[in-house]
């Protein structure tokens, strides 16, 4: 079916009369593009906060771990699923977990897909990830998914704890996508923009968080990262 179907559909589209393509209007650049570093970070935090996300600003990775301990204690977390992306991996969360009596699962520990899914859906009380970028204009967390950043870590557990290096915050989406989609064949196979917790308003327009994904998204914003 596909070849003839395709030919038929495209044939009809191509045979149709053409109309002029309207010229693109000039649009002033978004306000975020004019912000300096501190203002950009400020906008990012402001947007996250208005989405109901907790944001903790810390100086360095050491403080980030201390904050993580505090959060885990307060929430009584015993089992955490962590990704192995380049923000989280250097923190050695499995080691941190042993010190704090918290079981930390990482993708490496998982035998296979089923094992990983079992941990993500049944075991983990929280998922911990880094980000590839943060976007100020809407308080968005951008995650590129690959072997070190499985999709379910930031999605299946009821709580998502995100570690955001301040120097990864960009003003607008295009500053991220221009870079990621610049060359052919190099675009990430899966890219996610996370903006706040999982929400719904489907029953009588009552808004609440934690529908299918995380109910709480907690951000630890790290001023200076090691490398």
């Amino acid at each position: 079916m596909s070849q003839t179907g395709k030919d038929e559909i495209l044939g009809r589209l191509k045979a149709a009369p053409k109309k002029a393509i309207p010229p693109r209007p000039a649009v002033p650049p978004l306000n975020e593009l004019a912000l300096n570093r501190e203002e950009t970070i400020g906008k990012f935090v402001e947007n996250l906060t208005s989405l109901g996300c907790e944001v903790h600003r810390v100086r360095d990775p050491g403080e980030a771990l201390a904050k993580l301990t505090e959060i885990a204690r307060a929430a009584g977390l015993k089992r955490i699923l962590a990704s192995e992306d380049d923000v989280v991996a250097p923190l050695d969360l499995p080691g941190w977990g042993r010190q704090n009596d918290i079981e930390v699962f990482t993708p490496k520990d998982c035998r296979d897909r089923e094992d990983f899914k079992r941990i993500a859906f049944e075991e983990a009380q929280a998922g911990v990830t880094g980000v590839d970028f943060g976007v100020a204009e809407s308080g968005t967390l951008c995650l590129i998914h690959d072997a070190s950043q499985p999709r379910l870590v930031s999605l299946a557990p009821i709580r998502h704890i995100v570690i955001v290096p301040a120097d990864r915050i960009r003003p607008v989406y295009e500053t991220v996508t221009d870079k990621l989609f610049a060359a052919e064949g190099t675009a990430p196979s899966h890219l996610t923009f996370i903006t706040g917790p999982s929400m719904t308003a489907d029953i009588q327009a009552t808004l609440f968080a934690g529908m299918h994904g995380p109910k709480d998204v907690t951000v630890i914003l790290v001023e200076e990262t090691a490398a």
Partner: peptide, 12 residues
């Protein structure tokens, strides 16, 4: 909303 909670993009 400024953006929906999740925007996911698949390239392959």
């Amino acid at each position: 909303q400024l953006l929906g909670s999740y925007v996911s993009m698949d390239t392959g």
